[in-house]
């Protein structure tokens, strides 16, 4: 059992941040890794990225968008409540080294995943430019944190209610046009964002890493639910990833596989709204 020690809601309650007791995971986890969470006895196993860890307090930060029943259920938990199972750290950590200038691009809830990675690149001595985006100002998350984690933060909103009016890719294009010392772009967000971001950076010949979030079950390489095609080869995101060379990923397949249970997910969420379990 993992007690919740802190809770806040963000982005008009579409995103929830929980700090939970998980001392061993907090000690071991590295940026880029994730955990699997199973809320209760009847719950499903869902992968969630860690928005950070606090080894001294023995807590990890779960930051997730409320999309289906499992995340809706997690949001109903309060400080003092407990999550039954948390498994991790899983996946390969981000390969962080000092390479020069790195651009970290986070879209939507992807910013939460991006945050510890951005911090790690900065701590490794890189010049870090961060771009974060959301549909509008109210949906933007972790702006202050990302500002501190980078040298230069740019903000975009689709509707222009804050920061640059447009997409993260617009700002990235401008940066790539202005300077040619960018060694690496890291993009994490909705699949369409990552797809277009990679199309753009491919044209500039800049290496780009993305972090993928397909459906998983055991997340230890045992089931193959999370297969993704990278460079024409089938990979297991849970053990081979979650980060991959963005220019090699088959995003269309990823989107289709993410949508495999849409009908069941809707039925499950509707039932939860109706009877509360």
């Amino acid at each position: 059992m993992h007690k919740i020690t802190y809770k806040r809601e963000m982005a008009e309650k579409t995103v929830c941040h929980l700090k939970v007791d998980a001392p061993r995971i907090a000690r071991k986890a590295k940026p880029g890794q994730f955990v699997v969470v199973k809320a209760n006895e009847t719950g499903e196993r869902i992968p969630l990225t860690m928005g950070g860890t606090d080894p001294s307090a023995g807590t990890i930060d779960l930051i997730f968008q409320v999309v289906g029943k499992s995340t809706a259920l997690l949001r109903t938990l309060n400080v003092g409540d407990a999550i039954q199972d948390i498994i991790g750290p899983l996946g390969k950590p981000t390969h962080v080294e000092n390479i020069g200038t790195v651009v970290c691009v986070g879209g939507g809830t992807g910013v939460a995943v991006m945050y510890p990675i951005t911090k790690a690149y900065k701590e490794a001595g890189n010049h870090v430019i961060a771009i974060i985006g959301a549909r509008n100002k109210d949906l933007l998350i972790l702006e202050e944190e990302m500002k501190a984690a980078s040298h230069d933060l740019r903000v975009t909103t689709d509707d222009g209610s804050y920061g640059h009016h447009g997409f993260v890719t617009d700002v990235l294009k401008k940066i790539l046009d202005e300077q040619n010392q960018v060694k690496l772009v890291v993009g994490i967000g909705p699949v369409p964002m990552m797809k277009f971001l990679c199309k753009l950076t491919k044209g500039y010949g800049v290496k780009t890493m993305v972090s993928l979030n397909p459906i998983m079950v055991d997340a230890t390489g045992m089931c193959g639910a999370c297969r993704v095609t990278v460079g024409g080869k089938t990979m297991f995101c849970c053990v081979d990833g979650p980060e991959f060379d963005g220019h090699e990923v088959d995003y269309d397949e990823l989107v289709k596989r993410q949508r495999a249970y849409l009908t069941e997910e809707k039925a499950s969420l509707d039932r939860f709204k109706e009877i509360g379990r």
Binding site: T42, S70, C223, E264, A267
Partner: peptide
């Protein structure tokens, strides 16, 4: 995956169990 969903996660009892 098929058997893990059904056996370990009890997906055969969906939607009483959450795993589809």
């Amino acid at each position: 995956e098929y058997l893990t969903r059904s056996n370990l996660m009890k997906a055969y009892l969906f939607p009483r169990y959450d795993t589809p």
